[in-house]
Simulated scan of single mutants.
Amino acid sequence: MDALRHGAERLRRDVGTAIFARVAGPDGEEVRSRIHDTPGPRWFGPDRPIRTVHADASMFVGGLSALLLQTLHPLAMAAVDQHSAYRHSPWGRLQRTSVFLATTTYGTAADAQAAVDRVRSVHADVHGTAPDGRAYDATDPHLLEWVHLAEIRCFLAAYRRYGAQPLTPRQEDGYVADTARVARALGVLAPPTDVAALERRFAEFHAELSVTPAARDAARYLVLDPPLPLVARPAYLGLSLAAVDLLPWWARIALGLPLPMPVRASAPVAGHLLVRGIRWATRPPQTPRAPETPSPPGPPDPPDA
């Protein structure tokens, strides 16, 4: 029995290490230590909902779903298509995004602001003309709002379905309010601060959305042709099914990703198995952390951007 236990623990560590390396990059341990162990005030205290949601393995499903949904704004998709190397370096993009989320959620206020400043600096060079002739600019508060809405709506939807502990309606509103602080720092002018406002603003964007060839290409790449070895494809298929199933029905149709009823019925099962497997493999080590100085309860005023 001891040998089986030790073997299972070794397998858990090996799988967890592989997942962490993909998400956090080669210097992930150093980055994690800096984010969590550096003492100082944080944007969000330990009891804030943003910490609960962003720490959960359901983020894997929510993140892929958000990427798919974001492609449906033609100007946002043009910016990604023309300025991002997501096909050539998809893991690099994933790692940069995960470090940004971790830093703004758990890092010191100074590190969180520095992470925001880096993103804004990159956005300043992202502008051009979409295939339909319209100009786009990654610093446009309206486009930034769409990216934000799609992201947190998918994160929240994934947590509702696959999260370890359900949130109360008040906590869900708190999550939206927490993420609004980061959105304002990035340049969104008036991000929603509760679930009702999130749904209202999301619905208002619907008229601006349409599928483009670039969006369908990106969706096919993300769902059907990811840069993964064959041994990892079955697990990724479960992730893809769960992520596509979270999309609104009209988004699935537009992207050419309709799920036949028998397949859709199996998507939550696949999602639960995948998320529980990731949660088991990536269980964090029980090590003491440096004391934090949290912000006052509730989302504080955003820093000057």
Results as ranks from 00 to 15, higher is better:
Ala8Glu: 08
Leu156His: 01
Val116Asp: 04
Arg200Pro: 03
Gly16Cys: 05
Ala180Asn: 06
Thr282Met: 13
Val211Ser: 12
Phe155Trp: 10
Ser58Met: 05
Ala270Thr: 05
Arg12Pro: 07
Ile19Asp: 01
Thr105Gly: 07
Pro297His: 06
Ala235Gln: 10
His127Met: 03
Cys154Glu: 04
Thr104Tyr: 10
Ala218His: 14
Ala79Cys: 12
Arg160Trp: 00
Pro131Met: 07
Val223His: 00
Ala164Val: 03
Arg252Thr: 12
Glu172Phe: 10
Arg252Tyr: 15
Gly45Asp: 03
Leu246Cys: 07
Leu198Ala: 02
Ala150Ser: 11
Asp245Gln: 09
His83Ala: 07
Arg170Val: 05
Gly128Arg: 04
Arg184Val: 14
Gly25Tyr: 13
Val263Leu: 15
Val269Glu: 00
Leu144Asn: 03
Arg51Phe: 10
Ala196Cys: 04
Pro268Lys: 04
Phe60Arg: 06
Ala214Thr: 05
Asp125Val: 01
Glu292Cys: 08
Thr193Asp: 11
Arg32His: 03
Pro302Asp: 04
Asp217Ala: 08
Leu149Ala: 01
Leu237Glu: 05
Ala112Lys: 03
Val23Lys: 06
Tyr236Ser: 07
Asp140Gln: 01
Ala218Asn: 04
Gly25Arg: 14
Ala114Ile: 09
Gly271Leu: 01
Val31Pro: 00
Asp301Trp: 14
His142Ala: 07
Val231Ile: 15
Leu255Val: 09
Leu69Lys: 09
Phe205Val: 00
Pro262His: 02
Pro49Asn: 10
Asp173Ala: 13
Arg252Trp: 15
Thr212Asp: 13
Glu145Gly: 05
Asp56Arg: 14
Val244Ser: 07
Val263Ile: 14
Leu209Val: 08
Ser33Thr: 02
Pro294Thr: 05
Ala115His: 12
Arg32Ala: 05
Pro141Trp: 01
Arg22Glu: 02
His83Thr: 08
Ser89Arg: 15
His148Ile: 08
Val263His: 09
Pro268Thr: 02
Ala112Arg: 03
Arg34Trp: 04
Val23Glu: 03
Asp140Met: 00
Leu156Trp: 02
Arg96Val: 07
Phe205Trp: 13
Trp91Glu: 11
Asp81His: 15
Asp111Ile: 02
Leu4Arg: 13
Trp43Pro: 00
Leu189His: 15
Leu167His: 11
Pro260Asn: 05
Pro248His: 03
Pro297Glu: 06
Val80Leu: 15
Pro191Leu: 08
Pro234Ala: 11
Pro291His: 09
Arg276Pro: 01
Pro268Asp: 02
Gly25Val: 10
Val80Gln: 13
Ile19Leu: 13
Trp250Glu: 00
Arg134Glu: 04
Pro229Ile: 00
Leu186Met: 11
Ala124Tyr: 08
Asp194Pro: 11
Pro234Ile: 06
Arg200Met: 05
Tyr86Pro: 07
Gln82His: 14
Arg289Pro: 01
Ala112Tyr: 08
Arg276Lys: 04
Ala214Lys: 12
Val80Arg: 14
Thr71His: 15
Val244Gln: 11
